[in-house]
Structure formats: structure tokens, C-alpha cells
Design a protein around this nucleic acid. Structure first.
Length: 498
RNA sequence: GACCCGCUAGCUCAGUAGGUAGAGCAUUUGACUUUUAAUCAAAGGGUCGGGCGUUCGAAUCGCCCGCGGGUCACCA
């Protein structure tokens, strides 16, 4: 591999050599800071220029960061350094730091990391800054940063070199930080309610818990194939059977499907189960959880999203899927029980019916997706999913064609999926058998028979409410992000041959 | 997977009808002791995503490939 350096890279490498020759490690080590840019600004924000200037014993500030701008004016100069929290201006004067250090400062490049000690000051232009007394080179950046004014704009580069994106674009960094805070807020909320966070296997030998195409891998010692999980559901339910009353897991699911503005092959879910609860319990919990997370991270429940404002305040609409279809098309699927009639309607409305679809419920789902989903803007619990598309959900006792399931939609997008969990092992066995039939008819997303799970149900699972919430999408909503890639630290990209 | 759009200096972008490749930031040299997209003067830096073709001549036209973005389909 032959490296061809650009002119700027050669200059920087030479500067690193020069530092070494002066006895300075170009990639230095520990520097103990007294402040970061945020704590420094917080501590001195109320001082006037004169007050800082007249302090009898001005405190010594030790701070470090990456040089983002530099303005040399002869024997003095200014620079902004950046850390996690923001930027602070340095005032470096040859009289204060000495000739040797000033020379280092003059030769420093944008992107280098430095540590300084100095005193707080306010410049003539009114900016709180640090009058540097001791200037220390810490790390040489061998590559130049993007344009200090325009930043890194190229979308591909922003995802491939996320670290450069984070250095140059404060919005990107803040979004990713907010992601952590949202997940933390979720944990806090659930832990305070007594939920137990658990970790279940990611390698699954049986495909289940959702309908999706899996990634397949192989375990050498056992010489057997494994799936990367598409959902943790069946393991979490086993914990409910085992006697844990309320559990949740936050973790990665893997689905071998298309990549898009709202899909990444690995995505983060929060899945939760509460014994002795049901669908209504999950609706209440979802409203409370999302409100709590929004308040603690953003301080509001009115969320700007694109050109809309999403209102998360409690009291979300709760609508039966069949009623929504009736609103949009006038068709009342409560009255339609014959598959051929449903199929005729689908054809009439130009909906394509795949060969593995065998029930009226499948057609209902097609109608919902085609005519209702895109109309939903404000948070809406859509409940009453047909039994055909809900293999793990308890039937509606009043109308067994439908199940006690809801999906939460916000701005046409699914955010959560919840059930009154199916705890009847005999029914569950039938559902698995139906899934096998679909698989035989060509549904690549049908789940597999999990006899061990059926067995576990035979020991008795308490009535249970369960829910999965898509974390990435929630983060997108709360950070006003258009693409899921904007809320993933490192979104997947195709390899680029260089 | 299908369709549309993009790829030019480290970064952000121009590039007229096909005629030897441009700017700003960054870099180098010089001036400047409160600047902040610092300023002023000068200089260097490009296999125009890759390949093939058309042409006297291709960043520009055509075809193929690569990567990315968007829309659709599948899905959370």
C-alpha cells in the first residue's frame, strides 16, 4: 500500500517531526483540566470586562481542546478551541507565553489539540476568553479539517467519517448526545417504576417474535446455524412465566431488509412486559413514558418535526383499524367475512394481493396501509389488528377475528407495537402452525415453530401486556431528524474501494 | 431491486456552445500585540469518481461500472 500524501498532509507530518526534534511528543499525553468550555463560561458569565481585569487573584484556568480557528496578528493572536460542550477563545500573546511557546502556537494547525492555562478575560469585542499564560501542544492532526465556515456538508462523508461530522457540525453532535439522554431518560423512568432491565440472547436458533427476514450466522463449536435476533419477545415472555413481573430490554434487533431513510439493518428497540396488564395498560404506559422522556430531555411535549408540530400531551387518539378504514373508504370490514369478497374489494381498490395472503384480515391490513397510515399525523393508537397478522397476540374475546393489539403511529410512522399477550398455549400452537403454512406459501417473513416456547406457556403465563418501542424513530422525532442515519452514531454504508 | 439526481483542489462550490481547469476557506512565505468567516501582499496545490467510445480536441456528448442522495416496493 503506497501512501500518497497531499501537500497539506506533508506539511503537517513535517511539523510533527519538527516537534519531535524539539523534544515535544506530537501525540502527547495526560493533561489535567480545571474546566471545560461550558463550566468555564458558566463560572464567569456574570463578570464584566473590568471586574475580570481588576480581580486581585484571578483564578488559573486549565482547559484543553481542538483548535478550530486561529488569527495571528503579529506578536499576539487568537484561537478558538473546542471540546464536547462548545468553544472558547484563547488570547495568546508573546509577552505572556514566551517566545518558544508562541512559536508553537504560530505553527499550530487547525485541528491540533492543545492544553493551556491562563486567566479569564473579556476582549474589546466583548467575548469571554482565556488570556493564556502557558501554552502546551498536545496532539498534532495530520489531516486538515474541512472548511471552517461551511463545515462538512457532503452527506456520504458525514456518515462515513462521523467523527469529522461531529467536530464540524454542532447539530450532528448534539443529536447524537441527545440520543444517549433519551435512552437514559427511558431507563430512569422504567427503573423508577420497578422494572427490571434484562439481557436476553441475540443469537437465536429459532426465528420468532416478529415477521422479518433474518441475518444468518454459524456457530463453529456447536456446528449449528444461528439467526441474529429479529426481536427479543419470546425470551422476555419466558421471564414473565419465570415469575418476573415487569421486565424490559433495550437492545439491537437485526433485520435483513432494505436500508432507507427510516430503516437500518440493525436498530434499537425497547421491549417491555408487564404481568397482569393488558393493551390498555400498555397505552397508558406509552403515553406516560413518552411524555416523561420528552419533558426530561426537551422540557416540552410540543415537538417541532419538519413543518409540523407533534403534540405528545396525554389523551392520544385510540382508533380501531377497521373504523379508520371506514373513515377513509366507507368500507366496513366488520361486516365482511368472506375472503373472496374482500379480495374483490382489494382488486377494486387496486391493491395487490400476494399469494400467501389467505384471510380477510390480510386484506384489512392492506387497506389500512394503503389508505390510513399516511393520514395519521398526531399520536394515534391504532388497535384491533386482524388475527392473521398477529401470531403472538390474544384474541379479542368479543370478536375473535381481531386481536388485542395496537400500533402507535405518529406522522405516518410506526413507533410502537403492543399486545395483550397470547398466553393460551393451545392457541399459540395453532398460530405457529399457521405461520408454517404461510412460510410454505412463500412468505419469507413467517416465523418458525418454537415448541420450547409453547411448552413454557403450558406452565402458565400470567395475563400480560407487552410493547416494543422503536428507539431510533423516537430519537428522530425528538431531535427533528429526517433520516434514521442522523440518529445512528455509525450508519451502515457500502464499502468503498479506494 | 426499479426509477430520478449527484460525484471537479483537504473542504465548500463555479465551469459558458466540446478548445490547455477557476474562486473562497485551508496550506506556504511576508506584514500586523484585542481579533473573531481577522486583514493586506505573493505562491503552491487537480489522473474533473473509474473505464471504454465519439471527436483534430471531452470535466462537458454516449455507453458500462462504482459510491452516495431521493422516490417507490418490503419492513420498525
Amino acid at each position: 500500500m503506497e501512501n500518497k500524501f497531499t501537500e497539506q498532509e506533508l506539511v503537517r507530518r513535517q511539523k510533527a517531526e519538527d516537534l519531535k526534534n524539539q523534544g515535544i511528543d506530537p501525540f502527547g499525553s495526560r493533561f489535567d483540566r480545571t474546566h471545560n468550555t461550558a463550566s468555564f463560561k458558566e463560572e464567569f458569565k456574570s463578570f464584566t470586562k473590568e471586574e475580570l481585569h481588576d480581580l486581585e487573584h484571578p483564578p488559573l484556568i486549565k482547559i484543553a481542546g481542538r483548535i478550530m480557528t486561529k488569527r495571528i496578528k503579529g506578536k499576539a493572536g487568537f484561537a478558538h478551541i473546542q471540546d464536547q460542550y462548545g468553544q472558547i477563545q484563547l488570547y495568546v500573546k508573546i509577552d505572556n507565553v514566551g517566545e518558544v511557546a508562541y512559536d508553537l502556537f504560530e505553527k499550530a494547525d487547525l485541528g491540533d489539540i492543545v492544553g493551556v492555562s491562563g486567566r479569564p478575560m473579556i476582549t474589546n469585542a466583548g467575548e469571554l476568553s482565556i488570556k493564556v499564560e502557558n501554552y502546551l501542544h498536545l496532539v498534532k492532526a495530520l489531516r486538515p479539517l474541512p472548511d471552517k465556515f461551511h463545515g462538512l456538508v457532503d452527506v456520504e462523508e458525514r456518515y462515513r467519517r462521523r467523527y469529522v461530522d461531529m467536530i464540524m457540525n454542532e447539530d450532528s453532535k448534539n443529536t447524537l448526545i441527545l440520543r444517549s439522554k433519551i435512552i437514559q431518560a427511558m431507563r430512569n423512568y422504567l427503573n423508577n417504576l420497578g422494572y427490571l432491565e434484562v439481557e436476553t440472547p441475540i443469537l437465536h436458533s429459532i426465528l420468532g417474535g416478529a415477521n422479518a427476514r433474518p441475518f444468518v450466522t454459524h456457530h463453529n463449536a456447536l456446528d449449528m446455524p444461528f439467526y441474529l435476533r429479529i426481536a427479543p419477545e419470546l425470551y422476555l415472555k419466558r421471564l414473565i412465566i419465570g415469575g418476573l413481573d415487569c421486565v424490559y430490554e433495550i437492545g439491537r434487533n437485526f433485520r435483513n431488509e432494505g436500508i432507507s431513510i427510516k430503516h437500518n439493518p440493525e436498530f434499537t428497540m425497547m421491549e417491555l412486559y408487564l404481568a397482569y396488564s393488558d393493551l390498555e395498560g400498555m397505552m397508558d404506559l406509552t403515553e406516560n413514558l413518552v411524555n416523561s422522556v420528552a419533558m426530561s430531555t426537551l422540557g416540552t411535549t410540543s415537538i417541532p418535526y419538519g413543518d409540523k408540530t407533534i403534540h405528545l400531551e396525554k389523551g392520544w387518539r385510540r382508533a380501531h383499524m377497521v373504523d379508520l378504514i371506514k373513515e377513509e373508504t366507507g368500507i366496513n370490514f366488520f361486516d365482511i367475512t368472506d375472503f373472496e369478497e374482500a379480495k374483490r374489494l382489494a382488486n377494486e381498490y387496486k391493491l395487490h394481493v400476494e399469494p400467501h395472503l389467505y384471510g380477510v384480515g390480510h386484506i384489512i391490513n392492506l387497506f389500512f396501509e394503503a389508505f390510513c397510515e399516511a393520514k395519521i399525523v398526531q399520536p394515534t393508537f391504532v388497535y384491533g389488528h386482524p388475527i392473521e397478522i398477529s401470531p403472538l397476540t390474544k384474541k379479542d374475546p368479543l370478536n375473535p377475528r381481531f386481536t388485542q393489539r395496537f400500533e402507535l403511529f405518529i406522522d405516518s410512522r410506526e413507533f410502537a407495537n403492543a399486545y395483550t399477550e397470547l398466553n393460551d398455549p393451545i392457541d399459540q400452537l395453532e398460530r405457529f402452525e399457521n405461520q408454517l403454512k404461510e412460510k410454505a406459501l412463500g412468505n419469507v417473513e413467517a416465523t418458525e415453530m418454537d415448541t420450547d416456547f409453547v411448552e413454557s406457556l403450558e406452565y402458565g403465563m400470567p395475563p400480560t401486556g407487552g410493547i416494543g418501542i422503536g428507539i431510533d424513530r423516537l430519537v428522530m422525532l425528538l431531535t427533528n431528524s429526517v433520516s434514521i442515519r442522523d440518529v445512528l452514531l455509525f450508519p451502515h454504508m457500502k464499502n468503498r474501494s479506494k
